[in-house]
């Protein structure tokens, strides 16, 4: 059973490694954020499987933190990180102070 659980963890980690391709050559910034979001969820699954395989209870708390973390990154991206192209309107975005060069 332990070997099977570790095999599942290896498979999920291989999924993470494959999703890296989307981070590296995602055409837009949002694609990269989506890939990071998938990392967070797959990390939660890996930690849950490992918590049974390694018989370690605190790993489920780490999984909880992982679940929160991907949300923090995505919300920070939407609220502060998404840079508008010059022609685009900025929706519900307070204009940052632009300093003189």
């Amino acid at each position: 059973m332990t070997a099977f659980l570790l095999g599942v963890a290896i498979f999920l980690l291989a999924n993470v490694a494959a999703g890296l391709v989307r981070v590296i050559r995602g055409p837009t910034q949002a694609d990269r954020v989506v890939a990071a979001q998938l990392f967070g969820t797959t990390g939660v699954a890996i930690l849950l499987v490992l918590s049974v395989a390694m018989d370690a209870r605190p790993l489920r708390d780490v999984a909880l933190i992982f679940a929160l973390l991907a949300v923090v990154i995505s919300v920070a991206f939407v609220k502060r990180g998404w840079v508008r192209a010059p022609g685009q309107p900025s929706r519900a975005e307070p204009s940052l102070p632009r300093e003189e060069p």
């Binding site: 949002a30 954020v33 989506v34 979001q37 969820t41 939660v44 909880l64 679940a67 929160l68 991907a70 949300v71 995505s74 919300v75 939407v78």
Partner: peptide
Amino acid sequence: LLVLSAAATVCHIL
């Protein structure tokens, strides 16, 4: 449930 609601919310705002 937390991941479910968070994923739905993040997908919607993105």
